[in-house]
């Protein structure tokens, strides 16, 4: 293995010169980001900073005005099976006729490809994932009859059965009680310890250093990237939040 190859293998996500605009309004401006493999990273920034947009652009859900994204050194398209995604809560119709197990099974659809139906094995994997997030008892529940925290855990389980190398999660702690929050963090840390890369949109600066190794601070432009302690400085926060920093 040549050094260059191993280098690109150690960078899980690489974003170069990413610029995004909704109509004429720039939402992301010239973002460069390299996330090493095996870190648990938070994307931090004020509301409207473009965090969701960044994730969606990385996942190819939005078309950037310029720039490119690579996953393990290759374009996203060829690598999508290494990527798991937990969308922002509330983006689905909760009254949809489906139960928790069914939702989690959807995480296998990417592996199944066209036309193939989920097998017994896929269902077992889904049950397993539900168990890991502590929701095995709720497998048959219609999703609207779950609490906010339970719904979030179901969506986490759905990403888990994708068996990805990199996970993206958009504000998984919104509307979640303290106990569930700790459970989810525990699962994320386990994933990290298994060598997976986890990237989470987060907006509680208080818990940042407790939960995460790395942070990416941004507000339209990138402000800092690196270990949490290096990123969260007075100066950086001021650059991101202006005068209205949450804790300092």
């Amino acid at each position: 293995m040549t050094p260059i190859e191993s280098d690109s293998q150690d960078i899980a996500v690489s974003v170069k010169d990413l610029t995004m605009a909704y109509r004429e309004k720039p939402v992301l401006w010239d973002i460069d980001m390299e996330v090493p493999r095996g870190v648990l990273m938070a994307i931090v920034g004020p509301n409207g900073a473009g965090k969701t947009t960044l994730i969606k652009a990385i996942l190819g859900l939005l078309k950037p005005a310029a720039g490119k994204v690579e996953i393990f050194g290759k374009p996203f398209e060829s690598q999508r099976y290494y990527v798991g995604y937990v969308p922002q809560c509330g983006s689905v119709d909760w009254d949809f006729p489906t139960n928790a197990l069914d939702v989690v099974t959807m995480g296998r659809y990417g592996h199944l490809g066209w036309f193939k139906r989920p097998s017994k094995m896929d269902r077992d994997l889904a049950l397993d994932a539900l168990d890991r997030v502590g929701m095995a008892d709720f497998a048959d529940r219609q999703i609207s009859q779950l609490s906010g925290g339970q719904q979030q855990r179901v969506f986490l389980a759905r990403a888990l059965v994708q068996d990805a190398m990199i996970y993206f999660m958009d504000e998984p702690f919104v509307g979640v009680d303290a106990v569930t929050e700790k459970t989810i963090v525990g699962i994320l840390k386990t994933l990290r310890d298994q060598g997976k890369t986890v990237i989470v949109v987060h907006h509680d600066l208080q818990t940042l250093s407790e939960y995460f190794d790395w942070a990416f601070l941004m507000n339209v432009r990138q402000i800092a990237l690196g270990p949490v302690s290096e990123v969260i400085t007075q100066e950086n926060l001021k650059a991101a939040y202006g005068g209205r920093s949450a804790i300092f």
Partner: peptide, 20 residues
């Protein structure tokens, strides 16, 4: 309008890149 905007927006991006 969108076409014109895309070009002028991209031109600004080019300037920023050159400056960097």
């Amino acid at each position: 309008r969108l076409k014109a905007q895309r070009v002028s927006f991209s031109a600004t991006m080019l300037l920023v890149q050159l400056l960097d």
